[in-house]
Amino acid sequence: MKAKYINPFISASMNLFKEYLGLDVESGKPYVLVDPRSLDEVSGIIGLAGETTGSVVLSFSRDTAINIISKFAGHQYQALGSDVIDGVGELINIVAGNAKKDLLDYKIVISLPGVITGSDYRIHWPENVPVISVPFSSSSGNFTLNVSLRDAE
């Protein structure tokens, strides 16, 4: 996967979590996700189609999802209910939509976001394309950004 794919998503994530939400957040060194099923309990996923295709996922522990969506919505949630799940979908929608402005070489359409919860789920990543995972540490908990994209044939 081309390195230029990943940076717009890191920038969009930093803008959302640091500049907008005001979290004390730092991104770590990207790595190849060896077991694509080893994501956290709450994952927001969005598909990209057009001149590049693939998927982008934000993955949170239950507590981190609740903490971050409480901050995002301006309302303190206590449990992983429909609003928190809805909010996680909105976060990945914002990251993917914002990243498009820096993917200047491609015309891309983003799908509607989806949110998966649980401990044993499988995401259908593009075949034969590595999933690059970027760890983020924040004052509301840790999470990962996961990207797998390739040029359309």
């Binding site: 609003d83 809805d86 929608n93």
Partner: peptide, 13 residues
């Protein structure tokens, strides 16, 4: 907006 959270945010503004 299809997101209930976003509708709530805009409504509160």
């Amino acid at each position: 907006d299809d997101s209930g959270v976003m509708r709530r945010i805009h409504k509160n503004i």
